[in-house]
Structures are given as structure tokens and as C-alpha cells.
Amino acid sequence: MAQITADSINITVDGELAEAQVGETVLTVCRRMGKDIPTLCHHEGVEPYAACRVCLVEVTAGARQELVPSCQYPVSDGLVIQTDSQAVRDARRVVLELLLARCPKSDVVVDLARRYGVTETPYPTDDPDETCILCGLCVRVCEDVLGVGAIGFADRGIDREVGVPFDEASEVCIGCGACVAVCPTGHVCSIDDGLVRRMETWKTELELEECEVCGRPFATVKQLDHIRGLLPEHVPLNRICPVCRRSQAVQRLSEACSIVVDNLGATAGQDGIENLKSL
């Protein structure tokens, strides 16, 4: 992840001078400036991957001009960036034509392609139902962020795919659903059915646990065990759903407030007390 340091540098984006921090990526700076750069394999919570190639921008460093992935490319002093040059648009268009041929039914791909004037692709489609663009976010969030590694890449080249090893139910998947949340195309999906969470894409079923307060199933047993393992021993794990947790937190806060209000009552004015109560 980009580290923000005190070192400020100057770059030029589409002819406009801008300030950036050493360690930032081109994408971060450009987005801050309100530039429209599409991404598919990028997610703030995961390390840059530079695989989908729709975020390409044109940079000039010295005499060299090249297309680079903005999601990963670090800014440097004097860097000149073009986010919408002819070369950028041409390259994105080719990439989108290829993705459209791969995933003709993916709304995300179809919409993005349309924005670049691609409404049909010259290339054939192998599987009209394919929705995975191989951005790898599910695999990366599972292994790099959560440290679970239930899913992975298999094979290579055009045969590359994401999935569970040997295409059989995973013994280690905790059913946390992070893969579902980060998937940009909806390829990865899960369904909660009674006390069972079905990770459809990974052919894996997990038992759900009921909230200690409201009794609704809210998280998988394995997920809670996983979190338990990450917490220090003395910290208790409440097996409570997010909704109940939120209302409990509100409850606690208002109790705390009333104590504060009681204590402050003598010194604070009436307006201050009303403000605190409204929290």
C-alpha cells in the first residue's frame, strides 16, 4: 500500500500541475483530482496487481513514453501523465473487446466497454455464461488479506481459473464472504439458506451460527472460530450479529452519555446537554 510521507513532489496530469506524495500511485493521485480511470482488478484493501489493464495511462519520463498500470505505478517528481490520450483509449478499447468476448454477459464489462464505444467484439466467445474476468481479487483477499487461502489460481494461460483445489469442497474456507464482496462482476456468489451458507462458486457449504441476541443466523461457525483465533485470549468474542451489536453499542453509548450528562449537568449549559443527548 502507498505510504504517505512528507515528501511532496510535482507531477503533471493531463496538462494540469498537481502535488503528490512519494509512495503514492498514479491512480491514487488521479482519482483525488477527480480523473475518471476505470479499474477492475483494483481494490483499496488489497495490494495492486496490475493485471486487468483497463487502468492504463500514458506516462512520459525523460524521452520515453509508455503505457503503465496506474493502480501500481508509483509517482515520481516531474512525471507527466495522460489519462485519456489516444494511445490510452486505443489500448483500453482492445482490452475491453477481449474482455467482452470472454464475458459477454457481465454487466460491469458490458457497461465499461460501452463507455469506450465498444458495443460488440470482433472476437469469438468460448463460454457465453462466463463471468469471471480473472482479476484475482477473490484469491488475493482470501490468501493475502485473510490468510486463509481456501481458493487459488489453477493452471495457466488461457486455461487459468480461480477455484478450490481439485474442484472439490474446501476444508479451510471459513465462508466469510470477502471473496463475494470484492468480486467486481458478481462471478463469486454465496447464498444463505437457513442454517447453511452455500459458497456456490467454491462448491462449499458451511454451518451458520445464530446470533445470541436475536437468534438470526449471521456468520459461519468457522468464521467466528477464525476470528477467535486472531483475538488475544483475554478478549471475549461475542457471538452477536452486526445489527444487534450496533444496537448494543448505541445502548452503551447512551448510557455513557447519561452518566456524562449527569456529571456535566452542573457546569454545562442546557444546549450542551441537549446536544449530547442527541448523540
Partner: peptide
Amino acid sequence: DVPLARLYGLATF
């Protein structure tokens, strides 16, 4: 301590 998915990935790559 290594996920099966990683071994399977290497074995098929």
C-alpha cells in the same frame, strides 16, 4: 502450514 490451494496452483501452473 501451507494452504492446499497454493500447492494445487503450483502443481497445475
